[in-house]
Amino acid sequence: EFSMMFKHFDKDKSGRLNHQEFKSCLRSLGYDLPMVEEGEPDPEFEAILDTVDPNRDGHVSLQEYMAFMISRE
């Protein structure tokens, strides 16, 4: 189920989600993330990124995504 969600939000089929795609994916899974303006701080989402994209390369791989989802179950 999680990998299907990942593929759905991987719009460019790159095998990874940019942070915006990842945020959309989390919202569709029921995460209550506040709407913030582009460039505004988003501490809740930043905290999630610290876990799922610790190297802050700007992308979430399928492996990082799956590890995050399994840790939340």
Score class of each variant (00 low, 15 high):
residue 1 E to M: 09
residue 1 E to A: 05
residue 2 F to G: 10
residue 2 F to V: 09
residue 2 F to S: 07
residue 2 F to Q: 14
residue 2 F to M: 09
residue 2 F to L: 14
residue 3 S to F: 10
residue 3 S to T: 09
residue 4 M to Y: 06
residue 4 M to I: 03
residue 5 M to K: 02
residue 6 F to S: 08
residue 7 K to G: 06
residue 8 H to N: 14
residue 9 F to Y: 06
residue 10 D to S: 07
residue 10 D to E: 08
residue 10 D to Y: 12
residue 10 D to N: 05
residue 10 D to V: 15
residue 10 D to H: 04
residue 11 K to N: 11
residue 12 D to C: 10
residue 12 D to E: 09
residue 12 D to N: 15
residue 12 D to H: 05
residue 12 D to S: 15
residue 12 D to Y: 06
residue 12 D to T: 08
residue 12 D to K: 05
residue 13 K to E: 15
residue 13 K to W: 05
residue 13 K to C: 14
residue 13 K to T: 06
residue 13 K to H: 10
residue 14 S to A: 10
residue 15 G to V: 06
residue 16 R to D: 02
residue 16 R to I: 00
residue 16 R to T: 09
residue 16 R to S: 09
residue 17 L to E: 00
residue 18 N to R: 06
residue 18 N to C: 05
residue 18 N to L: 05
residue 18 N to A: 07
residue 18 N to T: 15
residue 18 N to K: 08
residue 18 N to G: 09
residue 18 N to P: 05
residue 18 N to V: 03
residue 19 H to L: 05
residue 19 H to P: 03
residue 19 H to E: 02
residue 19 H to I: 04
residue 19 H to N: 02
residue 19 H to K: 03
residue 19 H to M: 04
residue 19 H to D: 00
residue 21 E to K: 05
residue 22 F to M: 02
residue 22 F to L: 12
residue 22 F to G: 01
residue 22 F to T: 02
residue 22 F to I: 05
residue 22 F to K: 03
residue 23 K to N: 04
residue 23 K to W: 03
residue 23 K to E: 01
residue 23 K to V: 03
residue 24 S to Y: 06
residue 25 C to L: 12
residue 25 C to Y: 08
residue 25 C to A: 10
residue 26 L to W: 00
residue 26 L to G: 00
residue 26 L to H: 00
residue 26 L to C: 03
residue 26 L to V: 05
residue 26 L to A: 01
residue 27 R to H: 11
residue 27 R to G: 06
residue 27 R to N: 15
residue 27 R to L: 13
residue 27 R to P: 01
residue 27 R to I: 14
residue 28 S to V: 08
residue 28 S to W: 07
residue 28 S to F: 12
residue 28 S to D: 07
residue 28 S to Y: 10
residue 28 S to C: 12
residue 28 S to I: 06
residue 29 L to C: 12
residue 29 L to P: 00
residue 29 L to S: 09
residue 29 L to D: 04
residue 30 G to H: 06
residue 30 G to C: 05
residue 30 G to I: 02
residue 30 G to M: 04
residue 30 G to W: 02
residue 31 Y to W: 15
residue 31 Y to K: 05
residue 31 Y to A: 07
residue 31 Y to N: 05
residue 31 Y to H: 13
residue 32 D to I: 13
residue 32 D to W: 09
residue 32 D to N: 15
residue 32 D to M: 10
residue 32 D to T: 13
residue 32 D to R: 12
residue 33 L to C: 08
residue 33 L to A: 05
residue 33 L to I: 13
residue 33 L to N: 05
residue 33 L to S: 05
residue 33 L to T: 07
residue 33 L to Q: 04
residue 33 L to K: 04
residue 33 L to G: 05
residue 33 L to V: 08
residue 34 P to W: 03
residue 34 P to S: 11
residue 34 P to C: 10
residue 34 P to H: 08
residue 34 P to Q: 09
residue 34 P to D: 10
residue 34 P to K: 13
residue 35 M to A: 14
residue 35 M to E: 15
residue 35 M to S: 15
residue 35 M to Q: 15
residue 36 V to A: 11
residue 36 V to K: 14
residue 36 V to E: 11
residue 36 V to W: 08
residue 36 V to D: 11
residue 36 V to Y: 12
residue 36 V to C: 10
residue 36 V to P: 12
residue 36 V to I: 13
residue 37 E to F: 06
residue 37 E to W: 06
residue 37 E to P: 14
residue 37 E to I: 08
residue 37 E to C: 11
residue 37 E to Y: 07
residue 38 E to L: 11
residue 38 E to K: 12
residue 38 E to M: 11
residue 38 E to G: 11
residue 38 E to C: 09
residue 38 E to V: 13
residue 39 G to E: 09
residue 39 G to T: 07
residue 39 G to A: 08
residue 39 G to L: 07
residue 40 E to M: 14
residue 40 E to Q: 14
residue 40 E to I: 12
residue 40 E to V: 11
residue 40 E to R: 11
residue 40 E to K: 12
residue 41 P to T: 12
residue 41 P to L: 13
residue 41 P to R: 13
residue 41 P to K: 15
residue 41 P to S: 14
residue 41 P to D: 10
residue 41 P to I: 13
residue 41 P to M: 12
residue 41 P to Q: 13
residue 41 P to E: 13
residue 42 D to W: 02
residue 42 D to C: 11
residue 42 D to T: 05
residue 42 D to R: 01
residue 42 D to V: 04
residue 42 D to H: 05
residue 42 D to G: 03
residue 43 P to C: 10
residue 43 P to Y: 05
residue 43 P to M: 09
residue 43 P to G: 08
residue 43 P to A: 10
residue 44 E to G: 10
residue 44 E to V: 11
residue 44 E to N: 11
residue 44 E to R: 12
residue 44 E to L: 10
residue 44 E to F: 08
residue 45 F to K: 00
residue 45 F to Q: 00
residue 45 F to C: 02
residue 45 F to I: 02
residue 45 F to H: 00
residue 46 E to R: 04
residue 46 E to Q: 09
residue 46 E to D: 14
residue 46 E to Y: 03
residue 46 E to F: 01
residue 46 E to A: 08
residue 46 E to T: 07
residue 46 E to V: 03
residue 47 A to P: 06
residue 47 A to K: 14
residue 47 A to R: 14
residue 47 A to Y: 08
residue 47 A to I: 05
residue 47 A to N: 11
residue 47 A to F: 07
residue 47 A to V: 10
residue 48 I to Q: 00
residue 48 I to E: 00
residue 48 I to C: 04
residue 48 I to S: 00
residue 48 I to V: 09
residue 48 I to K: 01
residue 48 I to H: 03
residue 49 L to T: 02
residue 49 L to A: 01
residue 49 L to Q: 02
residue 49 L to C: 03
residue 49 L to K: 01
residue 49 L to G: 00
residue 50 D to T: 04
residue 50 D to L: 02
residue 50 D to W: 01
residue 51 T to N: 13
residue 51 T to K: 14
residue 51 T to F: 10
residue 51 T to C: 14
residue 51 T to E: 15
residue 51 T to H: 11
residue 52 V to C: 11
residue 52 V to S: 01
residue 52 V to T: 05
residue 52 V to Y: 03
residue 52 V to I: 06
residue 52 V to N: 01
residue 52 V to P: 00
residue 52 V to L: 06
residue 52 V to F: 02
residue 53 D to Y: 00
residue 53 D to F: 01
residue 53 D to L: 01
residue 53 D to G: 02
residue 53 D to K: 04
residue 54 P to I: 06
residue 54 P to G: 05
residue 54 P to M: 05
residue 55 N to W: 06
residue 55 N to L: 12
residue 55 N to P: 05
residue 55 N to E: 11
residue 55 N to C: 12
residue 55 N to G: 12
residue 55 N to F: 06
residue 55 N to S: 11
residue 55 N to R: 13
residue 56 R to K: 06
residue 56 R to E: 05
residue 56 R to S: 05
residue 56 R to C: 04
residue 56 R to H: 06
residue 57 D to N: 14
residue 57 D to K: 15
residue 57 D to I: 15
residue 57 D to T: 15
residue 57 D to G: 11
residue 58 G to A: 01
residue 58 G to L: 00
residue 58 G to R: 01
residue 58 G to I: 00
residue 58 G to D: 02
residue 58 G to V: 00
residue 59 H to E: 13
residue 59 H to P: 01
residue 59 H to A: 10
residue 59 H to F: 15
residue 59 H to T: 13
residue 60 V to R: 00
residue 60 V to F: 00
residue 60 V to E: 00
residue 60 V to A: 02
residue 61 S to N: 09
residue 61 S to L: 08
residue 61 S to H: 09
residue 61 S to G: 14
residue 61 S to R: 11
residue 61 S to W: 07
residue 62 L to D: 04
residue 62 L to F: 15
residue 62 L to A: 07
residue 62 L to M: 14
residue 63 Q to H: 12
residue 63 Q to W: 04
residue 63 Q to D: 15
residue 64 E to L: 05
residue 64 E to W: 01
residue 64 E to K: 15
residue 64 E to Y: 03
residue 64 E to Q: 14
residue 64 E to D: 15
residue 64 E to T: 13
residue 64 E to V: 08
residue 65 Y to I: 05
residue 65 Y to C: 09
residue 65 Y to A: 12
residue 65 Y to F: 15
residue 66 M to K: 07
residue 66 M to T: 12
residue 66 M to Q: 09
residue 66 M to G: 03
residue 66 M to H: 07
residue 66 M to E: 15
residue 66 M to D: 09
residue 67 A to D: 14
residue 67 A to I: 06
residue 67 A to M: 10
residue 67 A to G: 11
residue 67 A to C: 08
residue 67 A to Y: 06
residue 67 A to N: 15
residue 68 F to N: 05
residue 68 F to Y: 14
residue 68 F to V: 03
residue 68 F to S: 04
residue 68 F to W: 11
residue 68 F to E: 02
residue 68 F to R: 02
residue 68 F to L: 08
residue 68 F to M: 06
residue 68 F to K: 05
residue 68 F to C: 03
residue 68 F to P: 02
residue 69 M to A: 09
residue 69 M to P: 02
residue 69 M to I: 08
residue 69 M to W: 07
residue 69 M to L: 13
residue 69 M to D: 04
residue 69 M to C: 13
residue 69 M to V: 14
residue 69 M to S: 05
residue 70 I to T: 13
residue 70 I to K: 07
residue 70 I to E: 14
residue 70 I to N: 08
residue 70 I to S: 04
residue 70 I to M: 14
residue 71 S to Y: 02
residue 71 S to R: 08
residue 71 S to G: 12
residue 72 R to S: 15
residue 72 R to A: 15
residue 73 E to V: 08
residue 73 E to W: 00
residue 73 E to Q: 11
residue 73 E to A: 07
residue 73 E to D: 15
residue 73 E to P: 15
residue 73 E to K: 12
